[in-house]
Design a protein around this nucleic acid. Structure first.
Length: 273
DNA sequence: ACATTGACCTGGGAGC
DNA sequence: TGCTCCCAGGTCAATG
């Protein structure tokens, strides 16, 4: 389940491998992803050079000669850089083939991801234009978050996962951020003070940066592997640990459902306001 | 304008 | 063993 740190890690790892590559064709074996892959994708991409990789939220951007390829990995998407002759596995949906015999291969069992093309500025694309601020940018600050929380009647956990407000924070990091800031995930957003918002913002940046660093180390060798990053699992305090002991106070971690998503927290460390 | 719910999809685990 | 059921998750569209 790639969240922002994983996508950033993938971008960093992939950039030196694909930037400057000439695309010869694309092989699409399964078009039905979150949205259908354009039927003329191979024709569009043929003879284009990938100049630069980018990222916006959880979207990977491949800037080419005449437009941009947008890739979202959904829940289960994996990109690998392999020789074109590499044996196919189930759910290997797309190969973007390069002139040197290598290819970028998209594998996505659950098909929640997407691969789309735009001729124009990708940031103006329908799916990207309404995205919220980048959590590692200066726009994500206490004042901004407070402005958002003030007027909203949802749990702070749901707000953090709302990509119209801030992008890239999914179920894993939302839980971890709220644990670190000692805020109960069900706390109504409009109960938070500016000071709480400041703590959330600073913690978010620390945790995401640390995860990017960890992802970088576990991901270095992904060229040969299936590319699954480690989610710096040893460093998770609450996610996936319901019923286990809190690493800080030893209380039993609890799980609740917020916005149809399971949410783990420590009933002792995290106060509800 | 905001909040909520359903839909999409497969693999893996639990339970029988 | 094999079946069924349920869960995981991101995010958009439709509905309230």
């Amino acid at each position: 389940m790639p969240e922002l740190p994983e996508i950033e890690t993938i971008k960093t790892g992939l950039a030196p491998l694909v930037e400057g590559q000439m695309i010869t064709r694309a092989i699409v074996r399964q078009r039905k992803l979150r949205w259908p892959i354009p039927s003329k994708l191979s024709k569009i991409l043929s003879q284009q050079i990938i100049h630069k990789l980018g990222r916006r939220g959880k979207y990977l951007l491949f800037y080419c000669d005449r437009g941009c390829l947008l890739i979202h990995l959904g829940m289960s998407g994996v990109l690998t850089f392999v020789p074109q002759k590499t044996k196919l596995k189930k759910h290997d949906h797309v190969d973007i083939c390069f002139a040197d015999g290598s290819c970028l291969r998209l594998h996505d069992p659950r098909r929640f991801g997407c691969m789309l093309w735009t001729d124009d500025d990708p940031l103006q694309h329908k799916l990207l234009i309404n995205l919220g601020v980048e959590p590692l940018s200066k726009k994500f600050n206490a004042k901004y978050l407070f402005m958002q929380t003030c007027k909203r009647n949802v749990s702070i956990k749901q707000l953090l996962m709302n990509n119209k407000i801030v992008v890239g924070i999914g179920n894993i990091y939302a839980a971890e951020i709220l644990f670190k800031t000692k805020i109960h995930p069900a706390t109504c957003a409009n109960k938070l003070t500016l000071s709480h918002c400041n703590a959330i913002v600073r913690t978010t940046k620390v945790i995401l940066k640390r995860a990017i660093k960890a992802g970088g180390t576990t991901f270095r060798d992904y060229r040969a592997s299936d590319g699954k990053p480690g989610y710096f699992q040893q460093k998770l305090f609450v996610y996936g640990r319901q019923g286990e002991a809190c690493k800080i106070c030893d209380a039993k971690l609890q799980s609740i459902i917020l916005g149809q998503r399971s949410t783990v927290f420590c009933p002792n460390c995290q106060d509800r306001l």
